[in-house]
Design a protein around this nucleic acid. Structure first.
Length: 483
RNA sequence: GCGGUCAUCGUAUAGUCUGGUCUAAUACGUUAGCUUGCCAAGUUAAUAACUCGGGUUCAAAUCCCGGUGACCGCACCA
C-alpha cells in the first residue's frame, strides 16, 4: 500500500485530518488526531515507555511548550535555526540570500555568514530582483521558531522547536532531587513547533508535531563500561555509511570493527532497532545512516538517523545525536549556574546522547508497513498492542436478548480494554470494518450463547474462530495482550 | 517561498474544453427499517458536494483575476 492509500485510510476512518479544515484559510502543516489516531498514538507511546524508558530505568518529565528567550540564546537556535532572506523592494518576492549569491557568483557561499557579509556581496555583485530587476532589501533572518509574546508587554519567548531543551534546563533540579547516577536517560513526550516554509505530506512534515525524546547524560570518560550492553549485543543493525556501503552486523561486531564508536552508542541504537522491530517494522526496511560532517545539526559530533523505507522513499524517524556537552556548557554559561555533577567522586559536566523520535512519522510508517490487501479484504495487521481498539463485541442478530447479553460483555471489558460495540449490518461487514482499522479480536454473541454462556472469538489475521465461555473472556484477553 | 499541475457529497468518479438541459449524476460509504443468522449478500428510504473572494454575462460548477490548500520538483527538516 502506498502513501495515497494510507492517507485515505487515515481520513476515512478518523485517524487524522487537517486542522481547521472547514475554513478555507486553514494553514498547511497542522493536523488533528481523531479518535482512532489518539488511541493508536497512546499505545505507541506506552510501548515506548515500556520498552525503552522503563526498561532502561529512565525518568520522564513533561515540560512547558513555551520557553524564555534565553533558553534559545543558549541552545543556539536564535542564531542557527534561521535562513538568510532578502525581499524585493518593489514586487516583494522573497529569495534565500546565500543561494541567490551562489547562483549568480557561481561560488559556494556558506549559510553561516553574517547579514552584513551577505549585503556586501549583493552590492558588489550588483544583484537585483530576478523577476522585476528592482533593488533588494537588506538581508534579514527568517527564524523557524514561532515567537510568542508573554503578558501585556509581549516579552520575548518562543514555542520550543525541539522538546529536549526542557530536559537541559531542568537538569539542575533533576540532578539535585532525583538522586541521579550517570548514565541516566531523561525522557519527554510532547509537541514541538517549527515554522516550516513549506510543510508537505500530512503527517510526514508538520509545523506542530510530536516528539518522543530521550537525552542520555553520561560521563564521556566512561563509555565502554556498560553491563547492559549484553541485552543488545546480538541485535542486528543496518549501518548505512554511503550509498554503496551498507554494513549489516550485530551491535557487538559493529563496535569491535570500529564502525560504531563505542558500546554506549551501540547500546542505544540497539534499543531503537529492537523497539521498531517489535512494533512491526521489518529489519530489512531499516537503516542507521551515519551523517557526514556537513549534514549534521549544529550541535552534534556524531549523528545516526534511523530511517525506514516507505513508499515515499527513505524516511527519517529517529535522530540519534551525540550532543556532547554542547547544551549543558552553553546553558551553564548563559544562566551562570554550575551544571556539573558528581560521578564516582569526579566532578563532571555530563555529555548527552540524544534519541529524538518523530512520533507522527513513526505512526505513519507502522501503518504503511502493516496495511495490506488480503484478497478482497483490507487488513491493518498492526501489532496487537498498538491497535486503536483491543476488542469489538457484536451480537449476531438484534433479535431475542442478544444485544442485551452483548452489552453486558462489553461493559465487563471496557475498563480494562479499548472496546467497541457494534450491532448494525451483517456480521461479515462488521468483521471487515474492524479488520481495516486493525482490531485484533472480535467477540460474537449468537443464539447459543445465552443458553451455553459462551461466545465466538474471531482473530483478525487468520480469521480463525474459537468458542470460549463468557467467564474465560477476560483471562483470554489478558493472556493475548500479555498485560 | 519559487516553478509546474490541480481543487465537485465521507471516498472515487461524471459534468468544465463548447456557459443555459445541473433543481449537479453514479458507485462505494454512512444512518434508519425490512430481510439474513459467522466473514463487505439482498432490499427500502434517508444522508451529503461545486475550495474561498471578486469579476465578465440576461445566465457561471463551467470563462477571467486574486487568496488558500493539495500533488510533483527545488530548498529545509523529526
Amino acid at each position: 500500500m502506498d502513501y495515497d492509500d494510507i492517507q485515505k485510510l487515515f481520513l476515512e476512518k478518523g485517524f487524522f485530518f487537517p486542522s481547521s479544515e472547514i475554513y478555507s484559510d486553514a494553514p498547511a502543516g497542522f493536523w488533528d488526531y481523531g479518535p482512532l489516531g489518539v488511541n493508536f498514538r497512546n499505545k505507541f507511546i506506552e510501548s515506548w515507555r515500556k520498552n525503552i524508558v522503563r526498561r532502561d530505568g529512565m525518568i520522564e518529565i513533561d515540560g512547558s511548550q513555551i520557553l524564555s528567550k534565553n533558553v534559545f540564546v543558549a541552545s543556539g537556535h536564535l542564531d542557527n535555526f534561521s535562513d538568510p532572506i532578502v525581499r524585493c523592494n518593489e514586487c516583494k518576492s522573497v529569495y534565500r540570500a546565500d543561494r541567490m549569491i551562489s547562483d549568480i557568483s557561481k561560488e559556494i557561499i556558506s549559510e553561516k555568514l553574517s547579514n552584513e557579509d551577505y549585503d556586501a556581496k549583493i552590492i558588489s555583485l550588483n544583484i537585483k530582483c530576478l523577476k522585476c530587476k528592482n533593488s533588494l532589501s537588506p538581508v534579514t533572518r527568517f527564524n523557524m521558531m514561532y515567537d510568542v509574546g508573554i503578558g501585556p508587554k509581549g516579552d520575548a519567548s518562543y514555542l520550543r522547536p525541539e522538546t529536549c531543551q526542557n530536559i537541559f534546563v531542568d537538569f539542575l533540579r533533576l540532578s539535585k532531587t532525583m538522586r541521579i547516577k550517570l548514565p541516566i536517560g531523561i525522557a519527554q513526550f510532547g509537541k514541538s513547533f517549527r515554522n516550516e516554509i513549506s510543510p508537505r505530506q500530512s503527517l510526514l512534515r508538520l509545523r506542530e508535531f510530536y516528539q518522543a525524546e530521550i537525552e542520555v547524560f553520561f560521563n564521556p570518560n566512561n563509555v565502554d563500561d556498560l553491563d547492559k550492553f549484553s541485552e543488545v549485543s546480538d541485535t542486528i543493525l543496518n549501518i548505512h555509511i554511503s550509498e554503496d556501503k551498507i554494513i549489516t552486523n550485530s551491535c557487538l561486531e559493529l563496535v569491535d570493527r570500529g564502525i560504531l564508536p563505542n558500546k554506549f552508542i551501540a547500546y542505544y541504537l540497539g534499543l531503537v532497532q529492537q523497539f521498531y522491530t517489535n512494533n512491526g517494522i521489518e529489519l530489512e526496511k531499516t537503516r542507521f545512516r551515519i551523517l557526514p560532517d556537513d549534514d549534521r545539526a549544529f550541535y552534534a559530533t556524531h549523528s545516526f538517523d534511523f530511517e525506514v523505507l516507505t513508499s515515499t522513499g527513505w524516511l527519517e524517524l529517529v535522530a540519534c545525536n551525540n550532543r556532547t556537552d554542547y547544551d549543558l556548557s552553553s546553558h551553564q554559561k548563559i544562566s551562570g549556574k554550575d551544571l556539573q555533577i558528581l560521578d564516582n567522586e569526579e566532578k563532571v559536566l555530563p555529555h548527552v546522547f540524544e534519541i529524538s523520535m518523530g512520533v507522527d512519522r513513526s505512526l505513519y510508517s507502522i501503518v504503511e508497513h502493516s496495511y495490506k490487501k488480503d484478497g478482497e479484504r483490507f487488513l491493518l495487521s498492526i501489532k496487537p498492542g498498538l491497535s486503536p481498539y483491543d476488542v469489538a463485541i457484536f451480537p449476531l442478530s438484534n433479535k431475542n436478548d442478544l444485544p442485551a447479553f452483548s452489552k453486558k460483555i462489553f461493559n465487563s471489558l471496557k475498563l480494562d480494554f479499548q472496546s467497541f460495540y457494534d450491532s448494525s449490518g451483517s456480521i461479515g461487514r462488521r468483521y471487515r470494518r474492524q479488520d481495516e482499522i486493525g482490531t485484533p479480536i472480535c467477540i460474537t454473541v449468537d443464539f447459543d450463547s445465552i443458553e451455553n454462556n459462551d461466545v465466538t472469538i474471531r482473530y483478525r489475521d487468520s480469521m480463525e474462530q474459537i468458542r470460549v465461555s463468557v467467564s474465560e473472556i477476560h483471562h483470554k484477553l489478558v493472556e493475548y495482550y500479555n498485560k
